[in-house]
Design a protein around this nucleic acid. Sequence first.
RNA 1: GAACAAUUAGCUCAGCAGGUAGAGCAAAUGACUCUUAAUCAUUAGGUCCUGGGUUCGAUUCCCAGAUUGUUCACCA
Length: 462
Amino acid sequence: MIEENFDDINITLFLDRLNKNIYHNYNFEKTVELNQVIKVDQQESIAGRVLLKRTLGNLIFMNISDMNGNLQISIDRSSFENFDDLSNNIQLGDIIGISGITYLTKSGELTLRANKCVPLRKALIPMPDKHAGLQDINLKQRYRYLDLIYDHSQRKKIQARQLIMQSIREFLSDYIEVETPILQNIASGAAATPFSTHHNALDTELFLRIAPELYLKQLLVAGYNRVYEMNKCFRNEGIDTTHLQEFTMLECYTTYISYEKLQDLTVNLLQFICEKISSIQEVKYNYKNIERISYVDLLARYNINYFEINENNIRDIALSHNIDVNIYKSYQSLLDAIYKKCCINNIVDPILVYDYPRHPLSVPKDNNFSYQFQIILKGQEIIKSYLELNDPCIQYENFRQQLDVLNTGDTDAVRMDTNFIKALLYGMPPAGGFGMGIDRVATILTDSDNIRDTLLFPLMKW
RNA sequence: GAACAAUUAGCUCAGCAGGUAGAGCAAAUGACUCUUAAUCAUUAGGUCCUGGGUUCGAUUCCCAGAUUGUUCACCA
């Protein structure tokens, strides 16, 4: 037995509205979008939601709105035998279709004078305040569809996000966009805690991917030279203003590319995105000249000498920067904490930092560093890139070392994926790849306080 | 995970040093043919988030819980 729970909907609210005509009209065809009505003396048909209504006896003005724009329409008694029905039944929030001829009102506003008015669907629940809309952040996120009707700054954030994704696809037009599995047997490719689930038919535990990386590299083995994926990844970790449990990641791979060209590629992409975004809003960051600096030099800029740090003094150095040394288990994570606290947090304009300490999936440069770089913007790592490790023996050994980390109880390590090792054994061409968190870029470029502002429907507990 | 804050009419918000709550918008009724959040008059609308406690009496004070937010911590 399935029971629906409507407890949170106050039925008495819409009894009033149920007494009105519930419209069932499905054949109205509009001729233009609301923002395409620009000239007088045009016969047009438009449709949308009634957001404002002013009744002046025998004349009604309404403002019709949707995501494309808004338009004032007028209905006068002399044009309609059923004027009283229309006047009485159309309420704020209803969706109506209007045909008529455009004209300028006495105050000069372009208006569609209706000679046909077809109510299309009634709003049975009263709409939010016609001016203020939703203000409660809880309600704004929970009922985003209402929020988007009223909050134009929220619309703009969503629009910017869409433009970012669109411009990425445009920039990568000579790459092939692919889809790789989201449900995976092993969630590898990054160091994070995955969501797990169960597949009934196969009776097996599955994980939601934390990164598409290892599958995309298998496509390099297959012979794809330029490939990318932009889609959801999932990490079962804390939620805050810069982290989501479900986020959109771009990962892009290019074979036979040099370290320097890889840097150029990511810088050009970021600049391309910023240019596109600046067509709809100001970009506050100096993205035109992006400085490139090595990891060691960046540390030095903040008075930290990388080569003087060792196992013996790192805890003292961390303590001197007010870092809680008990939280970080390994030398690497402690070093990373120092780097973030002392350097990253101070960065505002985009900067490219290269030659990071060794990473289990990247090509090592020497004993300390790998061919890895990141682009930092407003204190956040928005692009992470490296030359891809394609030596199966070193890769296997790196996975083995990560297993040791996992065995210490730390759940955040890159998990062993022997299928990936097998693919590497067949030979993966040299390649460079990068990843970019779309949500974070959108958050920063739209000047949002919370990463959830860039989502249509952020996760809520119901 | 911790601290702090918020939750009052459908929405936006007042208010109550402890005595059963108000406004604007929305809705209903009426007036009005050029309004721009139209205006004017009248009406109706409440589990003051939930559960305990203190009290003659709790929306208000205390405790616990729920949801949401912010900060910190964790997580690239």
